[in-house]
Amino acid sequence: MSGFGQALGFGIVSAALIALSAVAMSMQFGVTKHANFAHGELLTISAFTMVLMQKVTQNLFLDAAVGICVSAALAWVINKTILQPFRRVVKRLIIMLIVTASVSQIVQSLLAVGFGTNYVVLSVPSETGRHIGPFVWTTIDVIIIVLAILVVALLHILLHYTSFGKAQRAVADDVDLARIVGINSGAVISRTWLLTGAVAGLAGSALAVTIGTFSNLLGFTFLLVTFAAVIVGGVGKMYGAVVGSLIVGIVTEVSGYYLSSGYKQVIALGVLIVVLLVRPNGFFATFVADTKA
């Protein structure tokens, strides 16, 4: 039973990590209406920035802060220089998927040119986990869980009580209608990317600190569980993404307790496929609004 409790504890940490990444993606997906295959690279860039920053300072919080800024900047730049021009000329949204897949490939390759395809190491102070209730968590684990809760709370406030949040929800509901009532949708989308990049960057830093050793494929591998969580929760619904993360995180870790850990992602896919079959648009989707492809 203690083994199960431990696995559950890992599941919660893993869910917190996924949630950070998933709320960022869910928000962006909800506003821009297309999946971003380069989402993982926002996490990777933050993790690699931390590795670089360690040459300057050993303070992990400072390193992470710089990582988050770089990731936010990257998201903003990708939107400004590539996605926005494309959105003006592309009629079918699905083309945007190919565009983001190419961007993902480009960022991955550039990182490989700079750092090689081997693993890099982020030195993290080693510590042993302590028993907190039935769970065994390190300080870092606890920080990550608290951060995830904080970020969700902050985003809730931002989206519901600020003018930016209202504008963003209007754009997510109906771009044309938002434009008619005088909302500058371009600016809203731009800021959404900035925010997405920052939150994804935080997820990347947290992930880097948790696993310590990673390659340029860090984020790409994490992209899959993020997608699973977002789709399970229903795109554009922040709390859906949180619940999706809990499901995916806990199911993968707990099943990892019974199966070889190499099959974790396979389990995540299993969850995703079951959900797609049962509720094609996620558990929290109320109805299929669009009949368009």
């Binding site: 297309h34 999946a35 699905i94 998927l97 997608f227 496929i273 797609l276 094609p280 648009n281 299929v288």
Partner: peptide, 10 residues
């Protein structure tokens, strides 16, 4: 009734 977007992600 999976949207094209989801389909590609899947």
């Amino acid at each position: 009734k999976i949207r094209a977007n989801y389909f590609t992600v899947a």
